[in-house]
Nucleic acid binder design. Structure first.
Length: 370
DNA sequence: TACCCGTGGGA
DNA sequence: TTCCCAAGGGT
């Protein structure tokens, strides 16, 4: 029998304590297989993409919708990008949807519709970075891959009382996880670390009294909330703009599609001015009516909407008008029929514009999309 | 490395 | 109200 060093015993004990806790306290999630069962790699991949920088609560409904619309990766690959963007609308970070679609097609064409089990191959797929590749390899294929997300970063930073701030500390965190990884249950270990971070080792209110790793934790001597160390955040700039909702007598509204790349890439929007930096008090009248898609319409101000993006805040003046009878959609524009409004690929900011316009016309707000 | 890229909920 | 941030990836 080989002799183990003290630190090896400690690490083994840590992993065991974590898995014992997980077997008792694991979260029941729609994409999670029953204990002892291997989940569908497609389902794991789909959930992991959706969960990137997104809360479990926000993902659940979208996950169920996607799985109902496209039960297998072949189905998703056969769908149009437009359909996928429509289904993704409201979830944010739309490059994920474009990469999701491209990835499904790659899996079908280059891998025969079967997800590759190796982390190195998963990593080459669009939208699959270091975290997601490890997560799929570990959870769907039980490969001993280190899985480091925001939860794990926080848990490990506290366990080690890491003074190195993120993101510089990532290498050290990754090495630690790789070191304590139990090779018999790598999938459960990855999910256990994330569950612990989400439910016990929480950012603001860590539950140290019920934590299965408390006796291993270096941050317990002080305030665990001091970890991980993070760089100061930058101020969020403010931008101003105008949006124009032109409505035909039959209820159709004028819309256009945003460029494939960049902010809200590929999504549907109303016509509008550019969004320029300015003060909240500045009235965008000069960039308002004169930028309208139809000069002869009788535009009136319906109100303003506020929206916050990752790196700037936006206030849009919403102008509405009835389309003149002789007006046809300008280059790049199209009429969105009233019956198609609910399923359109409007991002949340455009849903706010729509709601503002409907209210101005005294029309009922649309029901929540299915 | 630093920046871009959404959204909604909780404290 | 304001701030924080949640299973990150691409460039």
């Amino acid at each position: 029998m080989t002799r183990k060093s003290k630190s090896e015993i400690g690490k083994s004990s840590l992993s065991k304590s974590l898995l014992v806790w997980y077997d008792r306290a694991r979260r029941d999630l729609p994409w999670r297989a029953a204990p002892g069962e291997r989940p569908d790699p497609y389902a794991v991949w789909l959930s992991e993409i959706m969960l990137q920088q997104t809360t479990v609560a926000a993902v659940k409904a979208y996950y169920e919708k996607f799985l109902a619309l496209w039960p297998r990766v072949d189905d998703l690959a056969a769908a149009s990008l437009e359909q996928v963007l429509q289904a993704w609308a409201g979830l944010g970070y739309y490059s994920r949807a474009r990469n999701l679609h491209a990835c499904a097609q790659r899996v079908v064409v280059e891998h025969g519709g079967v997800f590759p089990p190796r982390e190195s191959e998963l990593r080459r797929l669009p939208g699959v970075g270091p975290y997601t590749a490890g997560a799929i390899a570990a959870i769907a294929f039980d490969q001993p891959a280190p899985v480091v997300d925001g939860n794990v970063e926080r848990v490990v930073a506290r366990l080690l009382a890491l003074e190195t701030p993120l993101p510089a500390a990532k290498k050290e965190i990754f090495a630690f996880v790789a070191d304590i990884l139990p090779h018999d249950r790598p999938g459960d270990f990855a999910q256990a670390m994330m569950d612990l971070g989400a439910t016990v080792c929480a950012p603001r209110a860590p539950g140290c009294l019920i934590c299965p790793l408390a006796r291993f934790c270096a941050a317990r001597g002080g305030d665990p909330r001091d970890f991980p160390k993070k760089p100061p955040k930058k101020a969020r700039p403010f931008r101003r703009g105008a949006a124009f909702v032109l409505r035909r007598a039959d209820g159709a509204v004028l819309a256009r599609r945003r460029p494939e790349r960049g902010l809200l890439g590929g999504m549907t929007e109303f016509f509008g001015s550019d969004w320029r930096e300015g003060r909240a008090e500045d009235w965008p009248e000069k960039r308002g009516r004169e930028r309208a898609p139809c000069a002869t319409a009788n535009w009136r101000l319906a109100g303003e909407i506020d929206h916050v993006f990752t790196h700037f805040a936006l206030r849009l003046a919403v102008f509405v008008a009835a389309a003149p009878a002789d007006f046809s959609a300008p280059e790049g524009g199209f009429w969105l029929a009233a019956d198609d409004l609910r399923a359109a690929a409007f991002p949340s900011v455009m849903r706010k514009v729509e709601a503002c316009a409907l209210k101005a016309w005294d029309l009922p707000a649309p029901a929540k999309p299915a």
